[in-house]
Each structure stands twice: as C-alpha cells, then as structure tokens.
Design a protein around this nucleic acid. Structure first.
Lengths: 253, 253
DNA sequence: TGTCGTGATCTGTGATCACAGTTAGGTTGG
DNA sequence: CCAACCTAACTGTGATCACAGATCACGACA
C-alpha cells in the first residue's frame, strides 16, 4: 500500500540551547544540531503529505487508520494525529460515521482553488524574481532539465511529477517567505490528487505540452529578472494545466 | 481560564423516525438535513481558535493538555487532537520536550504575515466587491456601526475586536470562496494573538484611529461597487494596524 | 425474484495507562 | 550566602482497551 515510515531526512534542526560550553569557546557541541525530536506522528504526516502531493492517493480513495498504521509499521495513535492534521487542512476528510478518504473536488471547488493559486503562486513568483540569486536560478534550471528528460520518450510520469514540484518550490523558496511556502504547500496538498493523478495517467500531455513552454518562459524571465513576466509564465502554466484537468478529469457534481 | 465546553447548539437527536411515509409521498425525512456529527475534538478546536483570534491567549503563553482538558471538562484526548490541528497550522507550537505554547512572532515573521494578508485579503475584498449584494453590504455596515459604538467612550475592547472580525469576514464571505475564507482564517489565527492582544491593551487606538477611517472608505467603495477602492481601503486598514503593532508591540528577536 | 431485516465486522472516537524527558523547587555542601 | 545537586511533579507521546455507529453480506419472508 504505502511505503514504510523511514527515518526520513531531518526537516529542520532545532536551534536549541547550545550545550553550555565555556564562554568564548566554540564547542563541537555547537555544531551538532541537537538531534531533532521528530515525533512519530510528524513522520506519518510527512509520509501522507508526500503521497497526496504526488497524486499517489486518488480522489475518493478511502483510508483506514488501522490499515495505514499497519502498513507503516506504527500504532494507530500517530496515524490518528496525522489524519487529524491533514483533515484540518482539508487535504483529507472524515466522513461522519464512515471512513476517512481523499476529498473529491467539485468543479466549483477546483476552479476556486485554481484562482487562489494564480494569486498566491503568482505573487510568490513575482517576489522570488526580485531577489533570486544566480545559484537559485541554476537550481530551477536543473529541475526544468529533469522535467524535460522525464517528459521525453519514454515518458516517466512519476519523475515528471516530482521534477515539476521541485521546480515550482525551488522558485517559491527563493522568495524567502516561509509562511507563503507553507500556504502554497497546502494548496498543492488539495490540488495534488487530481493534478498529478491525471499527469500520471496521461503522460502524453507532458511532451510538447504547454508546461514545457511555460517553464522555458519562466526561466527566461528569471534570467532577465523580470517579475511581471515570471508571474505571467507561471499563470499560463497553472491555467493550462487547470484547463486540461477541467476537460479530462472527472470532477464531482 | 477558558470557558467550559458547552453542549453547544443542540446536535439534536434524530427526531425519531416518524414512520416511513408511503412511497411516492414527500416524507418529512427529506427535510431534515442530516444532522452534523460534531465531534468533541472539533468543539475543543473551535474553542481554542476563538480564543486565539480574539487575542485572549497571549503570545508565549503556555498551555498544558491536562489543564485545558480539565478546564473544558473533557478528557485529554480531544485536546490532543485540537492542539495537533492548531500546531499543524502553526497557530500553536509544541516545544520539543517542554510544553505547548502560543507562538511568539519575530518581526520578520510578522512582516511576512502582513504582506501575505495584503495580497490575500486584498484579493478577497476585490472579488467580494464584484459580486456583493445590497443585503450583504447592509450586514457589513451593521458590523461597522457596532465597531464604532464599541470604540467610543467608554471603549469596549472585547466588543470592538469581535465587531472588527465580523466586519472583515462578512466582506470576505461575500466573495463566495470557501477555501479563501479558510485561508484567511488561518492568517488571522496566527496574527490574532498580537493584533488583538494589543487592541485589548490599547483601546485608545480605536477611537479616532485609522481603522474607523479605513472602514468608512471601505463601505463607501462597496456602495460604489468599486473593487480597486475597496482593496485600497482594506490595504490601508491592515497596513495602519501593522505599523502600529510594529511600533508598540514587543516582537521577538 | 425482489426486499427487508439482522448479525458479524470494521470504522473513528474517547478514555486510561505507561513512559522518557524536562522543569522547578528544595535541600545539601561549599 | 551562593551554587550545585537531587528529587518530586509535570510535560507530551505512544499504546491499548472500550464503545457507539455504519457498512456489508447473508438469509428469511412476501
């Protein structure tokens, strides 16, 4: 079903009290970023988040706390916490007396989500372009190359989905606004299942599609340090993908 | 400490199936809109959310699961779920081995939050102005009147905070975008403790302050159906409040 | 053959217990 | 009188048990 919970990569080292070394001296203890307390529940949350964004959990798919717990090799408790968090973000929903499942978006909900993404991610792209460094542009370019490679014959949907995500977030992170990243992550969490499930099922869209063009325009705008153009490229990327979804994907109601 | 969890609005037990009506007839059962399952954890979440937005929990204040549970008259379990959700939204934070507390924003974090609010709430105001009805404008006006009344001598900080919140959300809800409301709520959840704790401590800011002017301009723009002006009025409202906070409130680092 | 009732099974929710880690307070030793 | 230690209380986390409600499949009745 799902991958077993791994030790995972350290998401963030706790600043923590640097072991009281003698004043003035730089102890080696200050270097070790005091092992983070990453709780089990957080790890499960991260696991489920990744699966949702990658579109590996289809809309409407039902989850069982006990099944997930067993699949991940943990007790039911951490899974409850993870599902509780994701349900608060409406990335999952718990039916009254039934089970917990991946939400099925209505057309109206999907359109609203897209409009919000245009505003928020457009803003992020604009701000990022103002302050992005050459090194960061290189990272974005690297992800674009990976995306292109994954889109060619033979197409590798999973890799393309990952590269696309990395490309976008590499750009957004350049803006240096953590809360904004967090907000965009939530949007992707909600849109991920449809967007990427589709991309997974129709890898053909990748090659020669609008995404490739939009990404190229985005990179060009970045290199010119043209915020408005970067925003425009991103808007086209999101819009084109959304239009395709509206035509092909099955949306509720 | 906090208000006890009340039975809330009657979750109303099913009105005892009034004998299945004959087929073909429109049964009274079709009328009852399947009663919501409001769980205990959700109620606690709502309680804490209200406390946070109202600024009744100060930044840095520590909470104890057991204490909150006892104060609300429930077991520790629902509180864990509520804290877990709010922590996922970063409306609360759990220190590694210590306790859970209301986050203390740094100046940089507060500024980022404000910038995001300008974008998101500005967008909401603009969209709302395009589709708002006269009745909805009247509701906004009513909340503005309540705000004015609460700001006058003698000032009633708690009422003013509530009226200000109701005014803003009445506007945003007119946009008819549920996910956007949810997003703005999260922003208020994070900014609420500083914003409203301040307003509570300095009620003088209310009277003759910039908020009154901004609200008047907002209402005028709504009546003219002028989206750009509405956005501008809101931007000034948020900016003025933020500037005041930056000058007076104690922010970390 | 179609429909309703019924029991087994599985669901999420809540409570209780156990535990490692930290904090705070009081006491002891200098 | 001050600092360091040490113990007792409290913290969140995780596991396990109990329970009401819903689903589903099978069987009885019309």
């Amino acid at each position: 079903m799902v991958a077993r919970v791994q030790p995972s990569v350290a998401p963030q080292s706790r600043p923590a009290s640097p072991g009281a070394g003698k004043p003035g001296e730089v102890s080696a203890l200050d270097e070790v970023g005091s092992l983070q307390h990453e709780t089990l529940g957080e790890r499960v949350t991260g696991e489920l988040r990744a699966l949702l964004i990658a579109g590996r959990l289809a809309p409407g798919e039902k989850l069982s706390l006990r099944r997930v717990a067993e699949a991940l090799g943990v007790s039911m408790m951490p899974v409850r916490e993870a599902v509780s968090r994701l349900a608060a973000d409406k990335a999952l929903e718990v039916l009254p007396g039934r089970a917990v499942r991946v939400p099925v978006l209505t057309l109206a909900q999907f359109r609203e989500l897209t409009r919000i993404r245009l505003v928020v991610e457009g803003f992020a792209a604009e701000e990022a372009t103002k302050v992005i460094t050459d090194a960061q542009i290189a990272v974005v370019a690297r992800h674009e190359a990976a995306f292109l490679a994954a889109a060619k014959d033979p197409p590798d949907p999973a890799a393309a989905v990952g590269a696309n995500r990395d490309l976008h977030f590499a750009l957004y992170e350049a803006a240096g606004m953590p809360s904004l990243i967090e907000m965009i992550s939530r949007l992707w969490l909600k849109a991920g299942p449809i967007l990427n499930l589709d991309m997974r099922h129709e890898p053909r869209r990748l090659d020669g599609g609008s995404a490739v063009v939009a990404h190229a325009q985005l990179l060009a705008a970045l290199r010119r340090r043209d915020p408005a153009a970067a925003r425009q490229a991103l808007v086209e990327d999101i819009s084109a993908a959304a239009e395709h979804i509206e035509r092909t994907a099955r949306l509720a109601e």
